[in-house]
Each structure stands twice: as C-alpha cells, then as structure tokens.
Design a protein around this nucleic acid. Sequence first.
DNA 1: AACTACACCAACCGCGGGGGG
DNA 2: GCCCCCCGCGGTTGGTGTAGT
Length: 264
Amino acid sequence: MGRAPCCEKVGLHRGPWDSKEDALLIKYIRSHGEGNWKDLPKQAGLLRCGKSCRLRWMNYLRPDKKRGNITPEEEDLIIRLHSLLGNRWSLIARRLPNRTDNEIKNYWNSHLSKKTGSKVKTMSKPLSTSSRKNNNNNNKKIQKYMKKIENEHEHAKETKIHSPKPVRITSFRWEESSPDQSIGENCVSDSLKDSSSDGHNSSDFRDLNVLVHDLVDHDLVNRLIVENPFEANMLHKLYEEYSSLLFCEENQSPIDHFTDTWFP
DNA sequence: AACTACACCAACCGCGGGGGG
DNA sequence: GCCCCCCGCGGTTGGTGTAGT
C-alpha cells in the first residue's frame, strides 16, 4: 500500500496553470502572504491542492523570481557548488539569488550533466505502440533502437551518484572537547566506518572520508584534527573553496572558520 | 510534408524532517 | 515518547517546441 495522497484529488485541477488561476493565487498571497498552503486553495477559491499552489508560487509566480537564461557566472557557480554539495539543489539555489531549486535542477539535468560528464540515470521512455509498429518495417530503426537500449542498459549500470566527493583522510581525531561526536560520525563515509571504528575512542587517529560540507554544516571544522599535513592542507583548500562559495554574501571570512587545529 | 528523436521545463509524486498536540 | 500534519526537497513524468531525417 502506498502512502495516502497529499490531498483529496477528486474535483481538483491538475496540469498546467491558466492565467485566471495565477491571478487568483497572486491576489491571495499579496493580501495574506505565503504559508498555510493547505487552506490556501479553499480561501483563494482555487481548485488545486496546496502543494500545487506552493510549487506554482515558488517556482513561477514569485515576484523576485529571476527568469531567463542562466548567465555564465551562474553556470560556473552551479558547477562548483554541485561538485561540493552534490544534488542538494535547495542548498545550491540559496547561493544563486532569485533562482529556484527546480530551475537549477532542470538546468543541470539538461545542460550541465552532459558538459561536466556526470553520470545521470535517465531511462528514456519506451517507444509508443505506433512507433513500434512503424519500426517493424524498418531494420535501420530497429538496429538503432536496440543499440539505444543497450546503451541505456550500460548507462543504468553506472547509475547516478551526484554525491559530493569526500576527502580521504588516513588519520584524524576529534578534539577532546567535541560536544557531540555522533554528529561527527555522520560526516564519515559508511564504507570506512566499520573498518576504522573498532576499539578506538574519540582521541585516536582514524581513517575516514570527510564530507567538507557536513563539517561546515555541523560546525565541526574546528574540532577535527588531521595528522597528515598534506591531507590537512588538501582539506583546508577544499574548505576554503566551499566557504568562499557559501559565506561570500554574508561578509564572513572563510578563514575565520578555520583554525590551526587541523595542523596538530 | 510527415514523421521521429531530442531538448527543455513546468508540474507531479512520494519521502522525510520538524513541530505541535 | 508517540502520533499526526504540514512543509520542503529531490526524483521523475509528461507536454510542447524544435531539429533532424
């Protein structure tokens, strides 16, 4: 059994919005503000579910929404942020003023995933019945189709993983004063957890992969002590790049977040 | 001109987290 | 502590336009 639908679907409009619906939604939000999406459709006189209203507003109608082509600067930022954050579109979108996560995700999938060579799991739709009928009389097309299927099969095996690349750290420890080591544990990759955690306490040097964004998100950068200077330097560089991307608009110096504790 | 394949993007779906009762 | 509801997120689908054959 699947999860119950988010709203009662009977009698509700679906698919593309028309101008009347847009006008109703804009008018309501202008006078009442955003939020309370569940009740909004009823109050605004819309035959849509709240989720659909929220999506329409957030991705299309919001007045601060920037429309039009992604600039080369924005593209560059998306690529760099994606390499650090992976498919965390909402996080990436927060760093691109007035762009939505949906817009960035679409742009990535249609433009950048090819450009950057990232593997994307996109199984194309099977041919329609009429298409298949036509193909029966066309060996060339059949061959082409079969080749395509084969390619997709190979592609599917590779599958997507847009996770950010972790930094390999062969020896580290958490600072003694770390208040919640369990949070830090979540910053290491599962594959290395098992082999590295046996019989060690928080002050031992261990082998792990570090996800820089998790360190920043959980404010753990000052609590990680890396033994190998080369690795510490590598982590430092990646952290600098990450910080410069994330904190630039908040006028924070990335270096303020980085201390000598990475160089014991 | 007709058909097909591909690209783009708005919209939908289902899951998970967080907050309130 | 548990349950329920709402919201936000990421993945996916489907409609439309356009390029290629």
